[in-house]
Nucleic acid binder design. Structure first.
Lengths: 250, 250
DNA sequence: CGCTCGTTTGATATATTTCAAGAATTGTGG
DNA sequence: CCACAATTCTTGAAATATATCAAACGAGCG
């Protein structure tokens, strides 16, 4: 049993190890990162656009999202995050935050001083690569979202989002892709897909009446994965999930 | 005069030094990276979606763009790149390319083996940070594009794109923000903004008749920067250009 | 000089938004 | 545990920004 087995940072380590093989010393160093665990309520803002955060934060439980406000006060959601995601390293590394980070649900986050992350990266190239990889996958997801919002119709955008959340929750060990927690309201789905809440509602009902999904409370049940993926023009390659992780059963 | 003063990689070094201070040894190591310079024609594809590139490439001259093809064959342009940009490190690091990279104009690119980049990063933490920073700014630009395509109307999207290209060319030392090369056709602008070429044409004429820009051949002259920035809901903070660089005259 | 590619213009179609209001859930304090 | 408030979801009708289709015009190029 390694030292730090009681560290709160296991979810982060789990994710980093999916990106790059880390030896025991690397893993121990990740777990030994200084951090403060914060319990935080739904809707709470973690970082404001324009802040100069000194820490980045790993999500331990619950869901968060990033968003920006455009002129007229309209909101665009940029990404959704869950257990193991290192959600604010961008803002911390770039000194001045260029977007907001907010909790979608209540949850726990670990605040890690950015200096400690940089020191660890300088010392341990494998960890640096894993961290870099994490932010590169982040970028890959942003690219796919540009396509989603720019070139797909409403129904396709929504189906695509549902597929992404399914696979990422599966990757994070939060359940199977066919039945998972959906922490977003229809208005939030609208802000993530560049639509209005009213139109999201109609499209979601369409997916339901067509028998692709069932929605109960705050969860999604996928009736036919292949059909939903087709409806969402969804090809999971952009998530860069290793074959071994993707293939593993829930 | 440092060694490698005749290296082709000066544009890359220039950019990295804008992100992080590098000492002479770091700089020399960057310039000493193994590379092959390729002259490449307009429209040529550098990397195909699905490839497993072994190299990343720094743009030495000319313009490139990244794009994805969605179902139905529609194209979404993800970003535009110019001198000094390290354009394909994402695809190389992530092993399998998740988007295409193609030349917008003819130009020269330096192909650098990804292994050499990783070795350099492991050896020189400051260089690693600069490279990471470069990819993080890349991500910041993607985020802004999600907002642009998701939550702004046609005229605003186009004005925003024009502002971004102006400032980035200024940053790259390619001219002033008020008069710069515009390497994109209206159809390409459409694919970058999630619109149709016809509509881009109408909006562009609107910006012209309103006296915000003038367009001659393949260049843009900005009549009133403040007005164009306002029309484009443009706040340059997301580019993370250091004050000293942004403030400097063209 | 003729061809190709890019731009411009017009008329019509349509996906999505907007506005409005009622129904269903969820949350909350007593 | 209930009653009330506040979200969230649902539905309908009308408005509009943008897409689509089609054709002419202009410019660069071999």
């Amino acid at each position: 049993m390694p030292r730090h087995s009681n560290s709160a940072l296991h979810p982060l380590l789990r994710k980093l190890r999916q990106w790059r093989a880390l030896d025991d010393a690397d893993a121990a160093a990740v777990l030994a990162l200084p951090h403060v665990v914060r319990a935080i309520g739904a809707g709470q803002v973690v970082v404001w656009d324009g802040d100069r955060p000194q820490s980045c934060c790993a999500i331990l439980s619950g869901f968060a999202f990033r968003h920006k406000i455009a002129s007229g006060g309209v909101r665009q959601i940029l990404s959704v995050h869950m257990r193991g995601d290192l959600v604010d390293i961008h803002n911390a590394m770039l000194r001045v935050a260029d977007h907001n980070v907010q909790m979608l649900t209540e949850g726990q986050i670990a605040m890690i001083p950015i200096d400690a992350v940089l020191a660890l990266s300088a010392e341990r190239p494998r960890v640096a690569e894993a961290l870099w990889y994490e932010t590169l996958v982040d970028g890959a997801i942003f690219r796919e979202w540009i396509v989603n919002v720019g070139r797909r119709d409403a129904r396709t955008r929504i189906a695509h989002l549902l597929c992404e959340l399914a696979l990422r929750q599966e990757q994070a060990g939060l359940g199977g892709r066919l039945d998972y927690e959906m922490p977003m309201t229809q208005e939030q789905i609208a802000d993530a897909t560049g639509l209005t809440a009213v139109h999201v509602n109609r499209m979601l009902m369409g997916l339901r009446t067509d028998g692709l999904i069932a929605r109960t409370n705050r969860s999604i049940t996928v009736a036919d994965w292949a059909q939903l993926a087709a409806a969402g023009d969804f090809n999971p390659r952009y998530l860069h999930i290793p074959e071994t992780v993707l293939a593993a059963p829930a």
